[in-house]
Design a protein around this nucleic acid. Sequence first.
DNA 1: CCTTGACCTTCCAGTTACAGGAAGGCCTAT
DNA 2: ATAGGCCTTCCTGTAACTGGAAGGTCAAGG
Lengths: 132, 132
Amino acid sequence: MNIGDVATASGLPAKTIRYYEDIGLITPLRDANGYRRFTETHLHKLAFIARARGLGFSIEQCRTLLALYEDRGRASADVKAVAETHLAEIDAKMAELAEMRRVLAELIHACAGDHRPDCPILQGLAAPADAD
Amino acid sequence: MNIGDVATASGLPAKTIRYYEDIGLITPLRDANGYRRFTETHLHKLAFIARARGLGFSIEQCRTLLALYEDRGRASADVKAVAETHLAEIDAKMAELAEMRRVLAELIHACAGDHRPDCPILQGLAAPADAD
DNA sequence: CCTTGACCTTCCAGTTACAGGAAGGCCTAT
DNA sequence: ATAGGCCTTCCTGTAACTGGAAGGTCAAGG
């Protein structure tokens, strides 16, 4: 398969696949004309990475997961640890966003949103009210 | 005030304040020795930006909000529109994270996390189960 | 008077995970 | 032979900073 084929099959842009080669996540073969040649195994790896990225794992976490995936002697505890770290990251981000959302929604609620200049949103940014 | 003073007062690192000058968010004066000189107004603006950034507004949104803040003839509707756009962005991110979290938590739950190699997390990444 | 340390300056590189685009080679069909 | 649709590499840009190097400035102490 050429890069266009695995791009279509994996759902990843060709650009991204070249980038993954650059950073050593995959290593396709090369044809005589310089074209990258991908095997089914490469495609599986790319699909694996695509799904892991879809769950929000960083590239480095994907690298680790891929290594564990290929290590038949792995302990599932090691995989679980990576996943739990990432879950904690997600929870932290969600909490941060929830707090932003809370304050922002409050300000929006207080704002008339008309032609007048008075604006609790700007006031809140200029000097926040005490938290209650 | 020198940059160190406004950094302390605003809670922003000096590096960040220099960056904000670079991109034209603020324009401190300069002393004869080349040092940046900040007024109370500069400090207020920096605090404003710091709070807006804390709510997750992008730099460009901050630029817009700052312009509205300084425009005494603004309509609060314009401010509200920026805030609502950002609220929608937050909601979108939260939904994305929630979905990641859902799938990830499911995989983690199914994984024994022991010394054995069998791992539903890796299996799920290699070939996801059908959604139910 | 000189030095020391804490400031300040500019400039350059690195971060994350790619995307866009230019310039040019290759391959298949007409 | 040429047109198109692939493919290649290389360079630049993104967001919002952070770290570090090399060097100027200033106030206090010996």
